[in-house]
């Protein structure tokens, strides 16, 4: 059974349909990309899956359970993590604190224990610090551990954004344009990270504009245009699809 199932989801803002009857399936351990021209509804799709928007019609299932109406934090607790397109980090906190924040649900201790910072609170903090350090290690963020996120350069912040989503220890990771605005070198690093994350068994749904990257690393590709899925399949197949070519290059006169 598919890990994530989106079944004919329709999302409208007033009269505008951001998504119309979009269906999508993601298998466990897959790397699926969603592409499409600007305004095609890619980010809306992620917003619907991660619970920021609730669709007017359709259903979403994660591991067999319906999450259509669930709020973002409930969905996160079930194992779906998300990195935002426009970096949405906590700029007043350090990299370390940002990542520790993502461990929120794993830090199970009460207010009283937190107030004296002893026993369970201390133990859990140390334990989760270890988990966070592994991610810092993995994403090569060691030099920035205690730097305020607001003061970091753009490429690093993008990396922290992905690292924070990883710190949630998700089963399914949603990445919204993790390479946008990066230099070639930074992009290559990011691709390396994504492939590594996937190799560790995490399912990845990737939104990306760089078609070269998408075609290289994806197992399957969904193409959205004007809120509709116009093609779906392995990258080489999708690249040959006439409607996809039209959507990207325009219709020949």
């Amino acid at each position: 059974m598919s890990q994530l199932r989106v079944e004919s989801v329709t999302l409208t803002f007033g009269g505008v349909a951001a998504l119309s009857a979009v269906s999508l399936r993601v298998e466990r351990g897959e790397l699926v990309s969603v592409i499409g021209p600007n305004g095609a509804g890619k980010t809306s799709l992620l917003n619907v899956v991660s619970g920021f928007y609730h669709p007017q019609r359709g259903h979403i299932f994660f591991e067999g359970q319906e999450i259509t109406r669930a709020s973002p934090h409930e969905i996160t607790k079930r194992g779906i993590a998300r990195a935002f397109q426009n970096i949405e980090l906590f700029s007043g906190l350090t990299v370390l604190e940002n990542l520790l924040l993502a461990r929120h649900t794993y830090l199970a201790y009460g207010l009283a224990q937190a107030g004296v910072f002893y026993g369970k609170a201390l133990g859990k903090e140390v334990e989760n610090r270890r988990a966070v350090e592994e991610i810092i290690d993995f994403m090569e963020l060691e030099p920035y551990r205690k730097a305020l996120v607001g003061n970091l350069p753009y490429g690093v912040r993008k990396r922290v954004e992905v690292a924070r989503a990883l710190a949630l220890s998700p089963k399914l990771l949603l990445l919204d344009e993790p390479m946008a605005g990066m230099t070639l070198e930074e992009k290559e690093d990011m691709v390396r990270f994504i492939l590594e994350i996937r190799a560790q068994g995490t399912t990845v749904v990737l939104i990306e504009h760089d078609l070269g990257v998408v075609m290289d690393i994806s197992d399957r590709v969904y193409v959205l245009d004007f809120g509709q899925v116009i093609a779906e399949g392995p990258p080489e197949e999708v690249a040959q699809n006439r409607r996809v070519q039209e959507a990207y290059l325009g219709v020949e006169a």
């Binding site: 996160t76 604190e97 924040l101």
Partner: peptide, 24 residues
């Protein structure tokens, strides 16, 4: 220095992202 304190700052800086971090 615990999740309670960090959660306060999180809703101040970005409550949308705080939601995505699994806190209400």
């Amino acid at each position: 220095r615990t999740r309670y304190g960090r959660a306060l700052v999180a809703v101040r800086d970005n409550d949308r992202a705080a939601d995505a971090m699994g806190m209400d």
